[in-house]
Write a protein that binds this DNA or RNA. Structure first.
Lengths: 329, 329
DNA sequence: GACGCGTGAGAGAGCGCTCTCTCACCCACG
DNA sequence: CGTGGGTGAGAGAGCGCTCTCTCACGCGTC
């Protein structure tokens, strides 16, 4: 009752193991008659090649690790980027015949597990998603010698695809100023993430260039942190008339705080987010935001990895930023 | 520059391959002196066992496939359940020393890939997430002989953990009636999913028992379908005063339509959702909903799978339903 | 002192596949 | 008719690990 082996197929077809192997792997030098009889035997026996044996012999696995930095606090957030990116990356990798091994690298423990897993030869390459900047994992993996790419910039040694955060922040701030706003605050993401840094830097730069004063509160990309930061901002500067949140989730949190405090959006305070997640369409009022093309982004990152497999040079690149104006500004 | 093998470690330590293997696998019959010298050699060489070789020899993989039904349309939804469940399941499985292979089973293609993957002996078990009821995949996998569990009920042959959908729907409907509502409509999920069926059945039952007429519109668990269905309902019965959406995402969509149509919530129309995703806290007004304990649910399903590995009997079970009252009702 | 037994180390046969090497055969050509 | 080249099939040596089997050794027992 055990699984049929290649040898069993060979016996049944009356040919050698080698011939069966050739048929299975689509080698060109196989006579049609042999191919025929082998395929029949395969069908009759329900033969499927044993993955481990094949990996062992070929030293290839056809698998890719998709490493996602998990929030360390054990907090389960319904981060929409997670869904969109993981789904799209999986889809593309699977379409390319690669198996996707999802790994969470939140804890030190998880990080160690990733390193071991890669070292154990389980995968041919690694795709990192939104790792924190200070994380040693990207460098550690890159040193290992196998292809590693990152969605979002991390370590210089790791090829990446990123969106244009500084430009996006600039667009957001100038949009608010164009709308006549004068006291424009920002709610940042966790500053150990490059995306958060770049969005803050972009904000600062735009404010400075236009001769305005920065008003900053710290968040961590979650809704609740957005709500908290908004409360803080309102206390610091009750007269502020606009907020640029470094992502949509925090903007949603900010909207809530504003509603609770009796401010009308956009009449009293304009709110702009970043990412353009689906939920941004369903806030009240619908959220103006900077579009991050998640799907394209994930696809491009996968393409980068696949190109690396083919020995292509690694050319990191940026996706263009684009403003989506709705009713919150 | 190739990876060190067990044999290299043995040579360096001056012992046999067998002894190294024993040390690596923590066999009890190893003299401390030998263990010592082997561990040193392992450290010096940076040895990590080759996964494929080990799998081949042991016929075990230590990996589990996490199969998620992906929306077929190529539509990327930021389904919060996806995040929460995948994250929590991954975390628990990793903690149990299992590797998690994420697979999307949206297309027929993807489904075939899953079957092949499992047949190729890549994994020791499978965890299915919210598959459609009519899907043949659960049965196909179960027939394969290896442990399969499902988050959400699917095929009779597959052990599962589910939440109590009928009871949840009942709670929701009676809550609306208790609030004095009389014309209570529902927006269903895709009716090929058992969760959607059960929630609809629960709604019907509660309405019938209390002597009310059912008003039904079809959705598919997405925000946009909720908005569309709400428009439909408003057209069918402009005087309705309450809506039970089969999940929160559709409730959010419904809120939007109601706002656009000039209805106030809850004054004119009460809205209740199902699942209690984080976003339900941030709608305006915050959404009353039936709580689905995603984290617990995912954990319980993983536990079920792990128990199956240990040869335990499969006892499917239901998580209790609970109402979370906020301001939309 | 001979024997039996328990403990711990080594030898080596697989696990199922790939891939190089070898060889048989056939055809074209001189 | 002999030879060379090309094509396609078979043999078998690994890939790196596990695990059974065997054996050496030391101790207690009679």
């Amino acid at each position: 009752m055990s699984r049929p082996t290649l040898e069993a197929v060979a016996a049944r077809a009356g040919v050698s193991k080698s011939s069966v192997s050739r048929v299975i792997n689509g080698a060109p030098t196989v006579a049609p008659s042999i191919r025929e009889v082998v395929l029949r035997a395969v069908r009759e026996l329900g033969y499927v090649p044993h993955a481990a044996a094949r990996n062992l012999a070929t030293r290839r696995t056809n698998a890719v690790a998709l490493v996602v930095s998990d929030p360390p606090k054990g907090l389960v957030s319904d981060d929409p980027m997670f869904s969109a990116v993981v789904r799209q990356a999986s889809r593309k990798l699977e379409a390319a015949g690669k198996q996707v091994v999802l790994m969470l690298a939140g804890s030190d423990d998880g990080r160690a597990r990733v390193v071991d897993y890669v070292a154990a030869g389980h995968v041919d390459g690694v795709m990192l998603v939104s790792m924190h900047g200070a994380d040693s994992l990207p460098a550690t993996l890159a040193r290992r010698g196998l292809p590693v790419v990152s969605l979002g910039r991390t370590n210089p040694a790791v090829p990446y695809v990123d969106n244009d955060n500084p430009r996006g922040a600039d667009l957001a701030v100038r949009h608010l100023l164009d709308r006549g706003r004068r006291r424009v605050a920002t709610i940042t993401g966790p500053l150990d993430m490059t995306a958060a840094q770049e969005r803050l830097t972009g904000y600062h730069a735009a404010m400075r260039e236009t001769g305005h004063r920065s008003i900053v509160a710290l968040g961590d990309f979650t809704r609740v942190s957005g709500a908290d930061a908004m409360r803080q901002l309102l206390q610091d500067d009750p007269a502020l008339d606009a907020v640029f949140a470094a992502n949509d989730l925090m903007a949603i949190g900010a909207l809530r705080t504003l509603r609770e405090s009796g401010r009308r959006v956009p009449d009293d305070v304009a709110v702009i987010g970043f990412d353009d997640i689906e939920a941004a369409l369903y806030t009240s009022p619908p959220l103006t935001t900077v579009h991050s093309p998640m799907t394209t982004w994930a696809s491009a990152t996968v393409d980068l990895l696949l190109a690396l497999f083919d020995g292509a040079p690694h050319t990191p690149f940026r996706l263009p930023a684009e403003l989506v104006v709705r009713e919150s500004t």
